[in-house]
Simulated scan of single mutants.
Amino acid sequence: MNTALEDTAPSLPVKQPGRFKRWLKSYYRHRYLLLMLLPCLLFFIVFKYLPMYGITLAFKDYKVVKGIFGSPWVGMENFQFLFEGREFPRALKNTLILSFYKLIFGFPAPIILALLLNELRKVFFKRFVQTLSYLPHFLSWVILAGIFMELFSPTRGTINYIISLFGGDPIFFFGDKHWFRTLLVSTEIWKSIGWGSIVYLAALSNVDTTLYEAAVVDGANRWKQMRYITLPAIMPVVTIMFIFAVGGIINDDFDQVFNFYNENVYEVGDVLSTYTYRIGITQMKYGLSTASGLFVNLIALILIIVTNSITRRFNDYGIW
């Protein structure tokens, strides 16, 4: 009878180790992997987080002699002066316009290239096109600016020579406000399309080939296979890359614009990064340049959060 009672009696719960102990055991078990991560953590701590103290310059009237700690606080005066200035609204407007153009025309470009390369069956030709499209990424904008300046030169450029052959007048493309933005967007797409397609090609390599075989049996042509199999398969990667692209819409490529623009196209080509460089380095207004950079980063953070929230409403993909 006692034995029956013992069998039916509820067993006492086994005491589990605390969360902190489990955390320590897990980290100790993976200690060698964490040790490999240490150089990366040190890099971000030393070069990304420690310099963030310099943000305080946005709220100070920085004096080189007094240093960061000795310079007086001015509150929001730098931001007020920044927004009330004539050049900052123009630079912000140009940044948004150029970034919007690059997002509309530049974001789909690597996706289209990756889809086209995925359809190629000649391995040699596919690798040749991939290599050819990657090469511009490894050239700096200093080199490319010199090449394009010569190519579009109004006196000795190949493009203007062809225009002259057909009876047209030479055009100073990089000094013309109507052409400058078009050239910036076009050269950016040409430079980055091959490198940007790597992510999508990697995603395409993981698509199950049996899905295509089943689609062929059902009578689907190549267009329908791309529409109903390939695109849905890479949609998580497309969504994440789109979030990053929207988050960077307030940013601009300083190297590209700085090497291409001139005083003739300031009205349409002066962007936030070149404006920040001009007031921070050439005019030594470090407080204003820091305020401008802080404003850009804050807007970029807000855009990423908003875009991620919107994309999560339409699908299950996002950064978090």
Score class of each variant (00 low, 15 high):
E150T: 13
R181M: 03
L184W: 01
G175N: 06
L165G: 03
G167S: 06
P136K: 07
D176C: 07
G167I: 02
I162V: 15
I159Y: 04
R181Q: 05
I171S: 09
P136G: 04
F166S: 12
F128A: 15
E150P: 00
L165E: 06
T187H: 07
I147K: 01
P170K: 01
Y134T: 07
V129I: 15
F174C: 08
G157H: 08
Y134L: 15
G168H: 11
L165A: 04
F148N: 07
T182N: 09
G168S: 09
F148G: 02
Y134F: 15
I159H: 10
I143C: 05
F166W: 12
F128T: 14
Y161T: 14
G175R: 12
E188Q: 10
T131N: 14
F173T: 04
S164K: 10
T158N: 01
Y134S: 08
E150K: 14
N160Y: 09
V185E: 03
F152I: 05
P154Q: 03
L183F: 12
N160M: 07
L139N: 00
I147Y: 12
A145G: 14
I189M: 09
L151D: 04
F180D: 03
S153N: 15
A145T: 10
T158Q: 10
S140E: 07
V129K: 09
V142C: 08
L184S: 01
F138C: 11
G167R: 09
Y134E: 11
Y161R: 08
I162E: 02
R156L: 12
S164M: 12
F148T: 04
T182D: 00
K177W: 00
H137E: 11
S164G: 05
L139A: 13
I147D: 02
F174N: 07
S140K: 07
V129F: 12
K191I: 04
T131F: 07
T131L: 10
F148S: 03
R156S: 14
S186N: 05
I189R: 04
T155D: 15
F166M: 13
V142A: 13
F152Y: 15
L165H: 04
G168A: 13
F172T: 14
L183R: 02
S186K: 03
F180H: 08
I189Y: 04
A145P: 09
I163S: 13
D176M: 06
S140C: 05
L132G: 01
W190G: 00
L144V: 14
I189P: 04
W179H: 08
L139Q: 02
T182A: 10
Y161G: 14
Q130L: 13
I162A: 13
Q130V: 04
L139H: 02
A145I: 07
R156Q: 13
S133W: 01
